[in-house]
């Protein structure tokens, strides 16, 4: 077997710094289990109840994200959600989520997405050059989710709780084939503030 078959980061071959400083730090979120959930038209109440029983969370009814016990759920459209399992493995969808299939269409998409976490004092200033949405501290709050467009690429963003340093943290999910284009757009936008990349982060 050659190394051709070994797993490696989608960002392994791109430059990992730009400019000077650490205004924006991009962290690869590898190993996430990701699925789309779409409620069946007449089953929303049952789905919400089953989800609450098994995951201890209420499915958001707007563009919001909640997380508990290593599972996050983000509202991305009316009666549609993105489910993300941390370190959840391949059995996340076939196992933990399978009980939802009576009430919803469930699609395993772990390999379809790349997710980057951005943190640093200049995250908002860098993203403001790239997306047509208001990222002001009071308009895009922790827990908020937005689907929008970044250099013609459809992206989903959500804001996490601020880092202990008080810096904002935003994660972006993009179709995996767009990952390097997204990364290069972010790196270029953040160059004036100093950009650096860090490999996979847990949590």
């Amino acid at each position: 077997m050659s190394d051709e078959c070994a797993a490696r980061s989608i960002f392994a071959a791109v430059p990992h710094t730009a400019g000077t400083g650490r205004g924006v730090i991009a962290i690869e979120r590898d190993g996430l289990a990701i699925a789309h959930l779409a409620a069946r038209a007449t089953q929303l109440a049952q789905l919400t109840e089953r989800f609450r029983e098994h995951f201890g969370m209420v499915l958001p009814d707007g563009a919001r994200r909640v997380a508990a016990h290593g599972v996050a759920v983000a509202g991305i459209a009316p009666q549609r959600w993105l489910l993300i399992g941390e370190d959840a493995g391949e059995e996340f969808v076939s196992g933990r989520l399978a009980l939802l299939e009576h009430y919803a269409a469930l699609v395993e998409l772990s390999d379809a997405y790349a997710v980057l976490r951005l943190r640093g004092a200049q995250v908002r200033a860098s993203l403001a050059k790239l997306v047509p949405i208001d990222l002001h501290d009071t308009r895009f709050r922790p827990g908020d989710v937005a689907q929008t467009v970044l250099e013609h690429m459809p992206v989903t963003l959500w804001r996490l709780e601020d880092a202990p340093t008080g810096e904002p943290m935003i994660e972006l999910a993009v179709g995996r084939s767009f990952a390097v284009s997204l990364y290069e757009a972010l790196r270029e936008s953040a160059t004036e503030f100093g950009f650096c990349f860090e490999p996979t982060a847990k949590g």
């Binding site: 563009a63 459209a77 009316p78 047509p132 949405i133 937005a146 929008t148 467009v149």
Partner: peptide, 11 residues
């Protein structure tokens, strides 16, 4: 109604 106020370019 779901996403809030958005730019024309998204539609």
């Amino acid at each position: 109604p779901f996403c809030g106020e958005r730019d024309l370019s998204e539609f």
